[in-house]
């Protein structure tokens, strides 16, 4: 059995590293303060694809809780802040951490952890051991959110 926890390798100030070996499916990332400055894939994402993920009820699910400047999607949620202007309020790295694991910033948040596999219970068959979004999809959504300037 492999360890399935996120192992803090080094704690230097507010810097954590996540072990790549512990979770073969998740890419390693480094948290600096309240952000993940570096791309999970090493590449920059595609804002157009990111918009489609945010709009989708089966991929991003974002519009269940949030509203966003995506006028063709009529049914949007109001459980969470409007995403319009997210790219003016937050840096790219801050947005990345909010997607990867918002519970790092607010332990009681209802925002799902889009790139985390531990501390989950009764995950439905077919969704086990998979993050909600892949590293590439996270980068696409980050690119879209960064483009939402006010």
């Amino acid at each position: 059995m492999r360890l399935r926890f996120i192992l803090p390798l080094a704690v230097v100030g507010a810097v954590w590293a996540v072990s790549a070996m512990a979770q073969e499916e998740l890419r390693p990332y480094v948290i600096v303060g309240d952000s993940i400055p570096d791309s999970l894939t090493g590449l920059s994402g595609d804002a157009e694809r990111g918009r489609a993920i945010v709009a989708s009820r089966t991929a991003g699910l974002c519009l269940l809780c949030h509203s966003a400047p995506i006028p063709e999607e009529r049914f949007q949620g109001n459980l969470a802040p409007n995403l319009a202007g997210a790219g003016s309020r937050w840096s790219e790295g801050q947005l990345r951490l909010r997607l990867v694991d918002a519970s790092r910033l607010n332990p009681n948040t209802i925002m799902p952890p889009y790139y985390r596999l531990d501390r989950l219970h009764r995950v439905a068959r077919g969704f086990e051991d998979k993050p909600i979004l892949s590293a590439g999809q996270i980068e696409d959504v980050v690119a879209y959110l960064v483009s939402l300037k006010e």
Binding site: I110, P112, L120, H121, V123, I132
Partner: peptide, 9 residues
């Protein structure tokens, strides 16, 4: 009151 599922709600 317990969180469950991939969405952790």
């Amino acid at each position: 009151k317990g969180r469950q599922g991939q969405l952790n709600l």
